[in-house]
Write a protein that binds this DNA or RNA. Structure first.
Lengths: 193, 193
DNA sequence: GGGACTGTCATACGATCGTATGGTCTCATA
DNA sequence: TATGAGACCATACGATCGTATGACAGTCCC
């Protein structure tokens, strides 16, 4: 019988397992044992790909960064910039369980980055890239000088991430509807023109 | 020899030790042993006041909430609302090491709140209170209906917390100057009038 | 066809974890 | 002065942690 599908690389399976645990139970429940069990491999296999736990965490966050990068790169600077921008930013808000899980992961890593330089480095890189993309979109609808767009882009990204942080870290505080409304509100105020 | 000063209650010393460790090394380095050592007491003493680690964490976050509440309550709705509001919000940004330590603590607890309902409850309460205070300030300079001020206040707070999150979780990304500028920028855009 | 390499597993070691238990000391009060 | 409660300490237990070590099966090249 022919192979029906290419089996996923073990390394990716392990990374995904780590991110699943992070989304569901938090980064502090991530242990080599739990990750190995969730991935369906032995502890030694995890060690084969990631010699230390820190390496495993860094690799997982790198994967998160890769996904964000991929998503941002898909931004099309079409005719309706505002609509495209809003669509990209909506992806960063926990509007459904899938996105909520991703936000929980990002918040968990951001918090750890505050005391783990390797992660802070990655965070700085991805923040820069996303900001640049937003700034490009802003410059497209506006005639402001680049550094002005850059500054505005930082504020826009901070607002979206702040909304996401508040949403996943509190109870009875935000609904998907209020998040969407807040985003539109923020864009109305922050977008030039 | 007379007692020179009232000794701090042991319970407070323990809570402070926990917050110090959280600020310096992160919430995942907080263990009953480390907290006890940092507070200069025995493990049993910690257990005497906090029967479980979760209770200890919840109490510590309650203390953080209390401090924020205290700070917000000090907001004076004077003649220059914009200036007062900016001053309060600046306290939430990591503009110096003291505030950076506080932001690291808040971010750490926010991340844990994503998977710990007791903390999420507290987070919801304090977010509500701070938002109400900001909304009151906004309503003071504006004629918008209350729910409009409330919505704007949520965006303002999200922006500030997002800026703070980005600042403490990344390297070479923000300077105190750029943070201050971003705050002013955001207030220019978000404040009515 | 025999090393060298890679992927995977099983197990073990020492450290650290949260928590339980029971002790000593102080002091108010009956 | 007896006693009960509260503050504080020392130690111990079982679980879990990150990591080290060594084995076994394939694959590939000489």
């Amino acid at each position: 019988m022919a192979q029906l599908s290419t089996p996923r690389p073990t390394k990716d399976v392990i990374t995904d397992a780590l991110l699943d645990i992070t989304a569901e139970r938090g980064l502090d429940h991530v242990s080599v044992r739990h990750v190995a069990a969730a991935a369906g491999v032995a502890i030694g296999t995890v060690q084969h790909y990631f010699p230390t736990k820190d390496a495993m965490l860094t690799a997982a966050f790198t994967e998160v960064v890769r996904r964000i990068r991929e998503r941002v790169a898909a931004t099309v600077l079409g005719p309706d910039v505002r609509r495209n921008l809003a669509a990209v930013l909506r992806e960063l808000l926990p509007l459904d369980e899938r996105r909520a899980a991703e936000v929980r992961v990002q918040v968990a890593f951001a918090a750890r980055a505050a005391t783990m330089p390797a992660l802070a480095e990655l965070q700085g890189v991805i923040l820069g890239e996303v900001t640049d993309a937003i700034a490009a979109a802003l410059a497209h609808v506006d005639g402001d000088p680049p550094e002005r767009s850059q500054a505005r882009a930082r504020v826009v990204l901070a607002t979206v991430d702040g909304l996401a942080l508040h949403a996943v870290s509190s109870r009875d505080w935000v609904t998907p509807e209020s998040l969407t409304a807040a985003l539109e509100d923020a864009l109305d105020a922050l977008l030039p023109g």
